[in-house]
Amino acid sequence: ATNIVSKVKWYNSTKNFGFIEQDNGGKDVFVHKSAVDAAGLHSLEEGQDVIFDLEEKQGKAYAVNLRIK
């Protein structure tokens, strides 16, 4: 899926990962520091509106092509 609009559930800049809620009630989506860095960001804030693409690797959903709404 591409261009999903949602909100950051939480992000831990010390552990370099977090999760984004899915508005459709699906499972929370993992977001890694590499996606945050690629977006030119230093961190994410809880409740922040984001747009991302969903990529599945080894049966897990990852946020990629992250951008701020």
Rank of each mutant, 00 (worst) to 15 (best):
A1N: 13
A1F: 13
A1H: 13
A1C: 13
A1R: 14
A1T: 13
A1S: 12
A1V: 12
A1D: 09
T2P: 06
T2Q: 12
T2N: 10
T2V: 13
T2F: 14
T2E: 10
N3Q: 08
N3S: 09
N3H: 08
N3T: 08
N3F: 07
N3V: 06
I4Q: 09
I4N: 08
I4V: 11
I4F: 07
I4G: 06
V5P: 09
V5Q: 12
V5S: 12
V5R: 12
V5F: 10
S6T: 04
S6Q: 06
S6G: 15
S6Y: 07
K7W: 07
K7F: 06
K7S: 05
K7Y: 06
K7Q: 06
K7G: 02
K7T: 08
V8D: 00
V8P: 02
V8F: 02
V8S: 00
V8T: 03
V8I: 09
V8M: 03
K9A: 04
K9Q: 03
K9R: 09
K9E: 01
W10L: 03
W10T: 02
W10G: 01
W10Y: 07
W10I: 03
W10H: 03
Y11W: 10
Y11A: 00
Y11S: 00
Y11C: 04
Y11R: 00
Y11G: 00
N12E: 05
N12K: 09
N12M: 08
N12P: 01
N12Y: 05
N12L: 08
S13G: 11
S13P: 14
S13A: 13
S13I: 12
S13M: 11
S13D: 09
S13N: 11
S13C: 12
S13L: 10
S13R: 13
S13Q: 11
T14Q: 13
T14C: 14
T14R: 14
T14H: 12
T14N: 12
T14F: 13
K15D: 04
K15I: 12
K15C: 11
K15G: 05
K15R: 12
K15H: 08
K15A: 08
N16E: 09
N16P: 02
N16D: 04
N16H: 14
N16Y: 09
N16F: 09
N16M: 11
F17S: 02
F17W: 08
F17L: 02
F17V: 03
F17H: 05
F17Q: 02
G18L: 03
G18W: 03
G18E: 00
G18V: 02
G18F: 04
G18P: 02
G18M: 01
F19A: 02
F19S: 02
F19N: 01
F19E: 02
F19H: 02
F19D: 00
I20P: 00
I20K: 01
I20E: 01
I20T: 00
I20C: 04
I20M: 08
E21N: 11
E21D: 08
Q22L: 13
Q22A: 15
Q22D: 11
Q22V: 12
Q22Y: 15
Q22E: 07
Q22M: 15
D23I: 15
D23Q: 15
D23H: 15
D23M: 15
D23C: 15
D23L: 15
D23T: 15
D23G: 15
N24E: 10
N24Q: 10
N24Y: 11
N24A: 11
N24L: 10
N24C: 12
N24S: 11
G25S: 09
G25F: 09
G25M: 09
G25W: 08
G25Q: 09
G25H: 09
G25R: 09
G25T: 08
G25I: 08
G25V: 08
G26N: 10
G26V: 09
G26R: 12
G26H: 10
G26S: 11
G26Y: 10
G26A: 11
G26W: 09
G26M: 11
K27W: 09
K27M: 09
K27L: 10
K27F: 11
K27C: 10
K27Q: 11
K27Y: 10
K27N: 10
D28W: 05
D28I: 04
D28L: 07
D28Y: 05
D28E: 07
D28R: 04
D28V: 05
D28P: 07
V29L: 07
V29W: 08
V29N: 03
V29E: 00
V29C: 05
V29K: 01
V29I: 12
V29P: 01
V29G: 00
F30I: 04
F30M: 04
F30D: 00
F30W: 05
F30P: 02
F30N: 00
F30Y: 07
V31R: 00
V31D: 01
V31I: 10
V31Y: 02
V31S: 00
V31A: 01
V31L: 07
V31C: 03
V31M: 04
H32C: 07
H32N: 05
H32A: 05
H32D: 04
K33V: 08
K33I: 06
K33E: 03
S34P: 02
S34D: 07
S34Y: 08
S34V: 08
S34K: 10
S34Q: 10
A35R: 04
A35G: 03
A35P: 01
A35S: 09
A35L: 03
A35I: 07
A35F: 04
V36N: 01
V36W: 03
V36G: 02
D37V: 15
D37Q: 14
D37T: 14
D37E: 14
D37I: 15
D37P: 01
A38G: 07
A38L: 10
A38H: 08
A38Y: 08
A38C: 09
A38I: 09
A39Y: 02
A39N: 03
A39R: 03
A39W: 03
A39P: 00
A39V: 06
A39C: 05
A39F: 03
A39H: 03
A39G: 06
G40M: 07
G40P: 01
G40R: 07
G40D: 06
G40K: 08
L41G: 04
L41C: 08
L41T: 05
L41I: 10
L41Y: 09
L41E: 06
L41N: 03
L41W: 11
H42K: 13
H42A: 13
H42V: 13
H42G: 12
H42N: 12
H42P: 12
H42S: 13
S43T: 14
L44D: 00
L44R: 01
E45A: 12
E45V: 14
E45K: 14
E45N: 12
E45R: 14
E45S: 13
E45L: 13
E46G: 13
E46I: 14
E46A: 15
E46T: 15
E46K: 15
E46S: 15
G47F: 06
G47D: 05
G47A: 06
G47N: 07
G47Y: 05
G47Q: 06
G47R: 06
Q48H: 05
Q48A: 09
Q48F: 06
Q48S: 08
D49W: 15
D49G: 12
D49P: 13
D49I: 15
D49Y: 15
D49A: 14
D49E: 15
V50Q: 01
V50K: 00
V50G: 01
V50A: 02
V50S: 01
V50D: 00
I51R: 04
I51N: 03
I51A: 06
I51Y: 07
I51H: 05
I51P: 00
I51G: 04
I51W: 09
F52E: 00
F52A: 02
F52K: 01
F52Y: 13
F52S: 01
D53I: 04
D53F: 04
D53K: 03
D53Q: 06
D53A: 03
D53V: 04
D53E: 05
L54G: 00
L54C: 08
L54M: 11
E55K: 11
E55S: 09
E55G: 06
E55N: 08
E55C: 14
E55A: 12
E55R: 12
E55M: 14
E56H: 13
E56N: 11
E56G: 07
E56Y: 15
E56V: 15
E56D: 08
K57T: 10
K57R: 13
K57A: 11
K57L: 10
K57W: 12
Q58W: 14
Q58D: 15
Q58P: 06
Q58E: 13
Q58F: 14
Q58S: 12
G59I: 01
G59F: 05
G59A: 05
G59W: 04
G59P: 01
G59S: 05
G59V: 02
K60Y: 11
K60T: 07
K60Q: 10
K60N: 08
A61I: 15
A61H: 12
A61M: 14
A61N: 10
A61F: 15
Y62P: 02
Y62N: 06
Y62H: 08
Y62K: 07
Y62V: 06
Y62A: 06
Y62S: 07
Y62C: 08
Y62R: 08
Y62M: 08
Y62F: 10
A63I: 03
A63W: 02
A63N: 01
A63F: 02
A63L: 04
V64N: 05
V64A: 07
V64W: 08
V64E: 04
V64F: 06
N65M: 04
N65T: 02
N65Y: 04
N65H: 09
N65F: 04
N65I: 03
L66D: 01
L66K: 00
L66N: 00
L66C: 03
L66W: 00
L66R: 00
L66G: 00
L66M: 03
R67A: 06
R67Y: 05
R67P: 03
R67W: 04
R67N: 05
I68K: 07
I68A: 09
I68C: 09
I68S: 08
I68N: 07
I68R: 07
I68Q: 08
I68Y: 08
I68W: 07
I68V: 13
K69F: 14
K69E: 11
K69I: 15
K69N: 13
K69S: 13
K69C: 14
K69A: 13
